[in-house]
Design a protein around this nucleic acid. Structure first.
Lengths: 327, 327
DNA sequence: CCTAGAAATGCTCAATTCGAGCAAAACTGG
DNA sequence: CCAGTTTTGCTCGAATTGAGCATTTCTAGG
């Protein structure tokens, strides 16, 4: 066992370290992600190489290539996860001839206060295109009981041992809230991984160069980018509960309903308006500006702003979002 | 903007990817971390190179070198964070002549059910040696008001602009729970970073080759390992609240008091026994075995075991730990 | 000018959960 | 058999949560 200095030179082989950015913005209550067109026509997350000579930290490197390539100035940024599985680069490598290089990607989450039109390549896509089963704002999507549930059930039946079959059923039940189990919005990554294992997303078949046996769920992405996106959604949904990150997605002034719409878009389900507001002002996150927004369609709403530094004494650090029970 | 395949070959320069393991175990309610002696005598976290040719995933690589080097079979493992700042390797590079190589470390958290004696190099150290200010089980440590608070205050006074001074005071107040602010055990990393910036930990001076102006807090570690350790503590303290990871640190059978002692050790403060048990059995995490543990010193306690798969319907996913108010 | 509709805002109330304490039970060691 | 120690059971007020109804304040359309 050694410390940071490698005792022997490492037989690294071709090793590439890159940065993947998952950049979110919300437009009219609809969460969107910044995507690009990959070389082979697949939708992809923005990717930039990490140049250790030029960049002192990952974050500095990330901000720089996002700025140069999209003209976008990142605000809030946080590291997500580092993806290094062998084979994750294979689907692309086969097409481009860069086979053999091991690609390690450090994933980052970035939040933008508005989905600005982009000068460079790249466009904003609603994230529900990639995860249609995650949007419960108008009730649980039909696809869960119509498609996902039966197909997960037959996937469970494929298991040989009865013990493994029961484990699969239980896993499907808890991750998708089947059969009375509660829906946990934070488990978006678990759900994607389960669908992948069960062969219900296109990537599962592409990675094995097999043919799917039925329609595939949601729009697919290059490489493991949809997994990275799921990681980002899970992280963000968890984080809004204990850090006031939702405000990074808001303009400087906003109505309480706009804020609620954003939070509902992120969480993926509707909230009780009065309770949301009560929790908000117990936490003391926002203050009224006195000015009104008249274009509400009804009674004008007061414009509020985020109180960046000054939370009251023992206040909560995030927004109160209830657990969603059977619905 | 491109996808995963690098458009141009990357001028990577000397780039080394390694794996850092933060392995925890709890002994008699005392959380301990597995450390080694670094080349220059500094305490270090176990480190292993990542060989892309040999290992399909980071996790497989990690498990393998931990097994070969310490004889330890890892159970629960989770990725923490990837550390890649320039200069983090400098203190070691200067000593070993490997200067110039950029070292990127993927940090992992591992949990072990017992602090087994180690055949290889490495020993278990209580984590409170490195973070003495984090242990509030017997009340808030004196060092906070005697040393930390006054020194943070004078650090705040060093700021030029009055606005920046106020921001520093506020930051100290919320991270350390000064002046009536609540103590948030999850913010261990924030606290370490604040002490680093304020020059109260030895690493801050070592990295600048300056001399400290007073006694330094806690035992220091090589490179940025103490920061990695703080990251692990913060992550674990957060995670026990929404995933039943505490059980990864328990033997198969345990008394409820033993479980509580472990959770208290991790959280860093004492819990109300009856409330802890009430929450436990609402969550349905454990079941009695009927057998008794007589060596309690008092009334024998029933031995319990973790119910791995079968949580009741709408149950919580982690242990209820209250927010610690002013103390 | 009046009215229906829409949205914001204010208030209430029961159910649940939380925080904290007291008391009894069951055992060990002298 | 008694003092000490720990487990276990119970209670109770305070705080929080979930959900609904009522009122206010505006716009739009006749």
């Amino acid at each position: 066992m050694t410390t940071d200095q490698p005792a022997a030179p490492i037989a690294a082989g071709p090793l590439v370290v890159g940065l993947n950015a998952v950049i979110f913005a919300v437009e009219n209550g609809e969460p969107k992600v910044l995507v690009t067109e990959g070389a082979d026509g697949q939708t992809a997350l923005p990717f930039g190489p990490f140049d250790p000579a030029a960049h002192r930290t990952f974050e500095i490197g990330l901000r720089e290539w996002v700025r140069t390539q999209t003209g976008f100035e990142l605000g809030y940024v946080e590291q997500l996860y580092t993806f290094g599985d062998k084979g994750r680069e294979a689907p692309l490598a086969a097409l481009t001839g860069s086979a053999g290089a091991r690609v390690i990607s450090v994933g980052y989450l970035g939040l933008a206060p508005e989905a600005r039109a982009l000068p460079g390549a790249g466009r904003w896509e609603p994230w529900s295109r990639f995860f249609p089963w995650e949007d419960h704002r108008e009730g649980r999507p039909d696809m869960i009981s119509v498609i996902i549930e039966p197909r997960l059930r037959s996937w469970a039946d494929e298991a040989a041992a009865p013990g493994r079959r029961a484990a699969r059923v239980e896993r499907a039940r808890t991750t998708f809230g089947l059969d009375g189990a509660p829906w946990n919005e934070e488990r978006a990554l678990d759900r994607y991984e389960l669908l992948y294992e069960a062969g219900l997303v296109a990537e599962a078949w592409r990675d094995q160069t097999l043919q799917p046996d039925g329609s595939q769920l949601g729009a697919s992405m290059a490489s493991d980018h949809r997994r990275i996106l799921a990681t980002a959604i899970s992280r963000l949904r968890g984080k809004i509960k204990y850090r006031p990150v939702a405000f990074e997605l808001m303009p400087t002034e906003f109505t309480l309903s706009q804020l609620q719409k954003v939070v509902e878009g992120l969480a993926g389900f509707a909230l009780h308006k009065q309770n949301f507001r009560r929790a908000l002002d117990r936490a003391g996150f926002v203050e009224g500006t006195g000015r009104l927004e008249p274009k509400t369609g009804g009674r004008p709403a007061e414009l509020h702003r985020f109180r960046r530094e000054s939370a009251p004494r023992g206040a909560a650090l995030g927004l109160a979002i209830p657990r969603l029970k059977d619905h």
